[in-house]
Design a protein around this nucleic acid. Structure first.
Length: 808
RNA sequence: GCCCGGGUGGCGUAACGGGUAGCCGCGGAGGUCUUAAACACCUCUGCCCGAGAGGGCGUGUGGGUUCGAGUCCCACCCCGGGCACCA
């Protein structure tokens, strides 16, 4: 039944491979198009949600190639990570073996989709060929002072004695044994991304082909705020602490101050005091809660710790609290609280019966609680009478003159913690020597290959620490006994530069040849899920900027155009392996073929939106393809050799209008409407053939259809192209141009409204004048009856589409 | 709690700069072909009233701006996603 997609698809897939149709080299005579989909984690089978992404990217590869671009579309594997390690822990199978099996499966499914890549450039980050350059990159960052070590907390399960990823912590407890998770400090490696905070923020402005919401998310994530940092003394003690505020102008309104529960001063202040027990219990509870839980709680809780802080501007002593709504990780971990102008402080003050002193004049009729807006300063000593704009610098100057504070810029962005106490990741190329301290592994000794281990279970340090032959080395500097770093790198390090490796994937002598990178970079189109809007994309931007500063890459932003696709939903939830609602494509390949699946993925809705999976939908796109097939093979209607008539001219004009729409729709990523336009035209063509078509016209029109459809349904169209007597590879043909003369319409439908309601329509010349349109409209019989007994007050003519008659 | 999206037929959707709401597909109804079925093809398919002609209503709810609002503004309700009470 229907066309034989199984053999047709296999035939052309083999041909693209044997002809190396999509393998490319740098060719300065052609415009380049670097087309990248976010590489997948090799989790096992591809499901329909994955195919959505790969169908979009493949469509673009083929479309841009037909437009004459030298298109590089590579593929790779994010093949380090937790799932393979977990599988190893439970089954004992080496993560490498597990991972490489999955890669083979997924490659097969990509091939079956007809997705084409330059496989010569395939990368898999778990191979030493790749990760030695992760290590090289680490050494370069270390040289530049961008990699450093410091103490940082990890999630620690005391029962299993292991470090847990955030993902393995459920409700503050270990996912396996339900033991409450503790925090434990370990010495860990960081990348100094904060040094690039300003550039990462400013350069967002250049990324005008990124979705606004991704840029907004990155901006919020970086979180630059200007403000003031000043010091406060604790009354009756030698202690002081710094606070950060964006509103130094409101300092006179401070009625209490708050320290984060983890603030180092807290221990000293509560030790031996009346509130010690209560405070310790509070701190413990706060530590257990995740940051999100702490900030989500509507009720702001805290504890007065029996001390007062002295407001430097007026000497007033205000009560000092610990409260979990203040986070140690942001600013100084301490705040002055001004309930009059800050809603969080207002809520806290209300709950604990604290004073509220307004310092900004409220606007007339203000009925809110805290007032964050602008106004004239009141109750504020030397700031009285100023506006916000004047009083902020005045307050900062006041602090600076007295040496107790200064203006400063605070980022929310933290440095990037890259240490992982895991096996299945890239070893950090550092050595600890008791004499020389931290010593980098010499470049000539790379890669540091991680050895096979007996037991993959984490034990508070990486399983690598159990391998004596790996750990014990001679110090590269002094030759004395030393030990290796046993942590591995965050897998986000691998994915921060893989697109650069695509430019020169087989280079054994360098991370890449800068000349090849100069040709291909930046990535012209990057396609992936919006869940990567912040972390991956921010890290990739950071690493690119570092390499730019090193003179290795010619651009300081890696991705000129970003497209974030929606997720595929089934049964009310995102399609994913963990949700158990994946639809495996294999059965659909067997029943409808890859082209029908591709077309449905394109057709089901706007690519940016979430889409709902429907089994019947593939049936629909299959029917459409089968009809095209039957038209192309002469099974529909009849063809005549005759002179061209009006219906022939009309179907040709329609084909050109469709071509215009499909081209414009693909350009704006409206793939769903591009498919709809082709379906609409196929209905037209069907009717044309059934009433007897002209052979020559049909051949011309059908070639256009075949070309237009080819990036979407590349197998069937290739077969039709061949059957139509064409030689050569369809994918290498040129995308056709529409004829502007044919596309023009002479006659259009004009609607006539009375008071905004459509009352009649008529055909008019496309170039009708406003006054002719008005006259025609007023003369219509139906319109006359609507006007009877009423005054025509106004006529709005928008020729040639609309006339609106306003009556009263 | 905050931020960002989004609510259009039975369903997925279309309407690109305020100008014909519902293109295309799914599903459904009726028909042609067939011994029959499948396939294919044709017609109809937002809701209500009406035999029909036609009319009224209609894009989450309530207001507003406008000759004209799915589209812009205000308030609210619901759904989804993200998160960082960022001082």
């Amino acid at each position: 039944m229907g066309y034989d997609f199984t053999s047709i698809e296999a035939k052309w897939q083999s041909l693209w491979e044997s002809e190396r149709t999509f393998n490319v080299t740098e060719d300065p005579s052609l415009p380049k198009y670097f087309n990248v989909s976010m590489y997948p984690y090799p989790s096992g089978d591809l499901h329909m949600g994955h195919l959505r992404n790969y169908t979009y990217v493949d469509l673009l590869t083929r479309y841009r190639k037909m437009q004459g671009f030298n298109v590089l579309s590579p593929m790779g594997w994010d093949s380090f990570g937790l799932p393979a390690e977990n599988a190893a822990i439970s089954t004992g199978v080496h993560p490498r073996e597990f991972t490489e099996r999955q890669i083979v499966r997924m490659k097969g499914q990509l091939r079956r989709l007809g997705a084409v890549y330059d496989w010569d450039r395939e990368v898999a980050v778990h191979t030493p060929d790749y990760y030695r350059w992760d290590q090289w990159l680490f050494l370069k960052l270390y040289e530049r002072g961008l990699a450093y070590k410091k103490e940082a907390p990890v999630n620690w399960c005391p029962k299993d004695a292991t470090v847990l990823a955030n993902e393995q912590v459920v409700d503050g407890a270990c996912e396996r044994c339900a033991t409450p998770v503790e925090r434990r400090d370990l010495s860990q490696w960081f990348f100094k991304i904060t040094e690039y905070g300003d550039r990462l923020l400013e350069d967002l402005a250049e990324l005008d082909e990124w979705p606004d919401r991704v840029r907004t998310m990155q901006e919020n994530w970086i979180g630059r705020s200007e403000g003031c940092r000043f010091s406060m003394n604790v009354a009756g003690t030698d202690h002081s602490f710094d606070v950060f505020t964006t509103r130094p102008d409101t300092t006179f309104g401070m009625t209490f101050a708050v320290l984060a529960p983890e603030h180092p001063l807290v221990e000293e202040l509560i030790s031996g005091s009346d509130v010690e027990a209560e405070a310790r219990a509070y701190i413990k509870a706060a530590q257990r809660a995740s940051e999100l839980e702490r900030i989500s709680d509507g009720d702001k809780s805290g504890i007065f710790i029996g001390h007062h802080a002295i407001n430097p501007v007026n000497g007033v002593e205000v009560p000092l609290f610990i409260a979990d709504y203040v986070l140690m990780g942001y600013g100084t971990g301490a705040i002055m609280a001004v309930p009059g102008e800050d809603q969080r402080d207002w809520d806290f003050a209300k709950r604990y019966g604290l004073d509220i002193i307004p310092t900004v004049q409220r606007p007339e009729g203000w009925e809110g609680e805290a007032y964050p807006g602008d106004g004239v300063m009141i109750n504020s000593g030397f700031l009285n009478g100023m506006t916000k704009e004047e009083s902020i610098p005045a307050a900062i100057a006041w602090f600076e003159e007295r040496g107790i504070g200064h203006g400063t810029i605070q980022f929310r962005l933290h440095d990037w913690l890259i240490s992982r106490q895991r096996y299945w990741g890239c070893p950090i190329p550092m050595i600890n020597c008791s004499k020389c301290g931290l010593v980098p592994v010499p470049e000539s000794d790379l890669p540091v290959i991680h050895p096979d281990v007996e037991d993959y279970a984490p034990k508070g340090q990486s399983p690598l620490a159990a391998v004596a032959s790996f750990v014990n080395v001679d110090c590269p500097k002094c030759g004395g006994p030393a030990t290796r770093e046993t942590d591995t790198m965050d897998t986000f390090v691998d994915s921060s530069w893989y697109y650069l490796r695509y430019c020169d994937a087989r280079n054994d002598d360098a991370i890449f040849d800068p000349e090849k990178v100069r040709y291909w970079m930046p990535v012209d189109q990057y396609v992936g899920g919006v869940e990567h809007a912040v972390l991956h994309l921010l890290y990739a931007r950071f690493i690119t900027k570092v390499l730019y500063d090193m003179g290795m890459v010619p651009v300081d932003e890696p991705f000129s155009r970003l497209f974030t696709q929606g997720m595929l939903v089934k049964d009310g939830a995102k399609m994913s392996k963990s949700k158990g609602n994946v639809v495996n494509p294999d059965a659909y390949y067997d029943r409808y073929g890859a082209d029908a699946i591709r077309l449905f993925e394109l057709f089901m809705g706007p690519p940016t939106d979430d889409a709902v999976w429907s089994d019947n939908g593939v049936e629909g796109t299959y029917r459409f393809l089968d009809r095209i097939w039957r038209m192309g093979t002469g099974e529909v209607g009849t063809l005549e050799d005759r002179a061209e008539n009006e219906s022939d001219r009309e179907v040709l004009a329609d084909a050109h209008r469709t071509l215009k729409k499909v081209t414009e729709d693909i350009d704006r990523f409206a793939f769903n409407t591009a498919v709809a336009a082709l379906m609409e035209f196929s209905n037209t063509l069907n009717a044309y053939l059934r009433s007897g078509g002209r052979r020559q016209t049909f051949a011309e029109v059908f070639d256009l259809v075949t070309l237009m459809l080819s990036p979407m349904a590349p197998h069937m169209t290739h077969e039709l192209w061949e059957l139509g007597g064409h030689d050569g590879i369809l994918a290498a043909e040129r995308w056709p141009a529409w004829d502007p003369e044919l596309v023009k319409r002479d006659v259009v439908t004009m609607v006539v409204q009375v008071n905004g309601k459509v009352r009649d329509r008529l055909e008019v010349d496309a170039d009708i004048s406003a006054s002719d349109a008005e006259t025609l409209a007023l003369g219509l019989e139906k319109i006359q009856s609507w006007l009877e007994g009423k005054d025509v007050r106004k006529v709005i003519a928008r020729p040639p589409n609309l006339v609106n008659i306003v009556v009263g």
